[in-house]
Design a protein around this nucleic acid. Sequence first.
DNA 1: CTTTGATATGAAAGCGTTTTCAACTTGCGT
DNA 2: ACGCAAGTTGAAAACGCTTTCATATCAAAG
Lengths: 333, 333
Amino acid sequence: MEKQTVTIYDVAREAAVSMATVSRVVNGNPNVKPATRKKVLEVIDRLDYRPNAVARGLASKKTTTVGVIIPDVTNAYFASLARGIDDIAMMYKYNIILTNSDENGGKEVQVLNTLMAKQVDGIIFMGNRVTPELREEFKRSKAPIVLAGSVDAEKSQPSVNIDYVAAVAEAVKNLIDHGNQKIAFVSGPMDEAINHDYRLKGYKKALKDAGLTYDEKLVFETDYTYKAGQALEPALTAAGATAAFVGDDELAAGVMNGLTDAKIDVPGDFEVITSNDTKLTELVRPKMSSITQPLYDIGAVAMRLLTKLMNNETVEENTVILPYGLMKRSSTK
Amino acid sequence: MEKQTVTIYDVAREAAVSMATVSRVVNGNPNVKPATRKKVLEVIDRLDYRPNAVARGLASKKTTTVGVIIPDVTNAYFASLARGIDDIAMMYKYNIILTNSDENGGKEVQVLNTLMAKQVDGIIFMGNRVTPELREEFKRSKAPIVLAGSVDAEKSQPSVNIDYVAAVAEAVKNLIDHGNQKIAFVSGPMDEAINHDYRLKGYKKALKDAGLTYDEKLVFETDYTYKAGQALEPALTAAGATAAFVGDDELAAGVMNGLTDAKIDVPGDFEVITSNDTKLTELVRPKMSSITQPLYDIGAVAMRLLTKLMNNETVEENTVILPYGLMKRSSTK
DNA sequence: CTTTGATATGAAAGCGTTTTCAACTTGCGT
DNA sequence: ACGCAAGTTGAAAACGCTTTCATATCAAAG
């Protein structure tokens, strides 16, 4: 009793027209006499005909599906972008194939290949470690690819981001203005372009602008986890830091709570400012000051840009920079 | 200069074999002489041939793609499930089409239809408001559907969950054991089966078991947002509650912070216990006691179950109940 | 009534695979 | 040398749609 599928052929027969005509009414082609359109529509309704998107994809070479490579959906920052992406995708009648990469180069290459095999019309990539192999695969792709909230030092692809170096510089300057001389730079893996080539640069710039000297001992490289942040307290104190810029909100919550647990008052004795302005910043006490980013919009704009690219529209600027801000909450003075 | 795609036909020609043979080696069919397999493999490598999954899907009627309907990726609870789903999917060579529904019935029906149009091999549904129309669509689907971390009062579909009523009952009992007489039940929308038919039942059961009477005034229905929780403090105090069971972690963080901001000591003057055991419970101060759920596993097991269903394997039990626990942290005595 | 330029329609060729079925080889036992 | 089963291969028919191109149809113009 396998459920029977009704095809365009069945509709054509019942409506006494050709497949071509059925196809036309299904696709809203205007070259159909209203009377026959009505007739076909009735049959479609009666038979409950639903076009097979796979067959459609094969015939038209368009799948109305885009691939999205995300480090980890469980990360609030990327999840927000993903939401923006999906909403705009839906608005333009696309669906999203979502895959977690864990920023693992091998997995990324593999995933990219299966996405291409599935003939996605475009790809949105999130992740800050664009390896040469990956860049090679990007080039090979016939589907346009845009980076969202992610940078590639080589700028090999269209992308949408904020100005990370300016944002970080401003955040750090803020800390400096509060009288801090020893400001820690707490970062995720340094082999990620965003940390090494952008945030760190912003950090150094702020230091330099203020006449402070850069001290490697104030740079702390860890992974993006709450635990890692929490465990950082002894090292932070030992280094004599009185403030910290942190590259991820969950990580920042960790360092803040670690500090607090060690009876160090935030922001009284130690200020911390974070980067992503996810919901988390408001949930935690004290609330965390943060660089603000239009998270949802980064995703949304990236997807919008992708639709243009898929549509072969000429696009004025391939790398779009969205505005950032600084939100003072309670983890800074 | 449109990039040229190489097809199975090209490979066949170059290797001087038939398409059928190429297809066999690509699909690992053993009925191929090692020598010709080698020859074909070489050509595939030389031409960089990549099978077109869409054509494959049309011919084989399998897309190795499953649809996932999620209320909101931005919600930590569902995001965790999604991660479990994707990992297992990848393990079984499936991809995920992810769509946010906002638990909106109309959107859900529509999304379900496009998923079916795309010929997904199966569907995982998250959402606790299974409307009759939706149930109707479920039935119509030829692809198996399993609910993950979501209940349908009618139990119309395979699903994986924890025993919500027992879990909530235990959590509330815990509060009662601490001497609380007036325990608030803070819940998301009551038209969601999980709230009305499960959690509330558990709440009432615990009350009854302890000889306490159920008081509607202690039931607070809101939406699942931090703000909503935070705004609840006056009402909570007015009702004379000294403890609360909350149905969502972000919501719980809101009520806790609202209480704290109003100088009400948690857990000293007011205890709160939450439901989902997401990361959030650990980030917030005091850390929140919670029902623990194997979030990742709920997703993973749901996906695993789906693979069996898609494979027409006979499955012993269609509705699987995973174990829950109670984690005492610092928001309860 | 014929011509003409839209406007509607249909036939059929793909799209790139899988799969069925028949046919062809081999190796062996006798 | 013969017969046969097992192992290999290819031809061709799907799969369900879009799209091109030719053919009809039709209203208005001559």
